[in-house]
């Protein structure tokens, strides 16, 4: 249930950014969650709904962009299907994980500024 502590960190960061910019309200947030981020998007959303009450994000929508796990061979570019052995037999090299695969990112905030 670390989704709750992640949302706490997220809200703290948003409030900090909003204060710096003297924002009066936050309308929306966009986050990217990679398939290998170890975060369950639905739990993340539930945690957000719970924690946003009484914060600047009280009325802010949460957009979650899900990023699939992508593994490719660093030599020939072959991509690996889910469940496949993560090694390119032809090139004899271990697959490389695309960096978005474990993304846990605050992408942007829509805020109202005076």
């Amino acid at each position: 249930m670390h989704e709750y502590s992640l949302v706490e960190a997220l809200l703290r960061r948003v409030e900090e950014e909003a204060r710096q910019r003297n924002a009066t309200a936050v309308h929306g947030l966009k986050v990217s969650l990679g398939e290998l981020a170890g975060v369950e998007p639905e739990l993340f959303r539930t945690a957000y709904e719970t924690f946003r009450e009484g914060t600047l994000c009280e009325k802010a929508t949460l957009e979650i962009v899900r990023c699939p796990a992508i593994y490719v061979c660093p030599s020939c570019g072959k991509s690996f299907a889910r469940g496949e052995v993560l090694r390119c037999e032809r090139c004899a090299r271990p697959a490389r994980m695309d960096e978005k695969s474990d993304a846990l990112l605050l992408e942007s905030i829509d805020m109202e500024v005076p």
Partner: peptide
């Protein structure tokens, strides 16, 4: 009235950790 601005951050949620 106030204005709606998009703030692009693209930063890790666990940046503090």
């Amino acid at each position: 009235d106030s204005e709606l601005v998009p703030v692009e951050l693209h930063e890790k949620i666990l940046a503090g950790n």
